[in-house]
Amino acid sequence: MSTRPTIYKGKTGQWAFVLHRISGFLILMFILLHIIDISTINFPSVYASIHRLYGNVFMRTFEVGLLFGLTYHALNGLRVIMIDFFPGVIKNEKRLFVAMFSLSLLLTVVGGVIILKPFFTGRV
């Protein structure tokens, strides 16, 4: 591997890159499980007993985590794409990272309230 610095190996993008990598990996692990749980659709009672679990508070918390991973990965993915295709964007990559990170946090908080609330109020 060359040691020449690239936009991915520099200082500022390093956290963005690490988070992108971890979130991408975790989403993939979830997709693998999710394909299996949906494939039980032909055995309705199995499907129902698996999907009841999604409603408990631990799984709901996990779903909020998934929301953060997904929104961060999606928005930061857009940032990477913009940097690659529009050369001028690199000048603002740090500010863009802060913007994307904050937006994904905001979406996670709003979505998190919607996801967790039914567990506590009992109303769906």
Binding site: L70, I115, P118
Partner: peptide, 16 residues
Amino acid sequence: HFSITHIFNDVTTTTV
């Protein structure tokens, strides 16, 4: 996909 199954619908209603 995430919005449909977790935001606009509660996850417990994503039944068969």
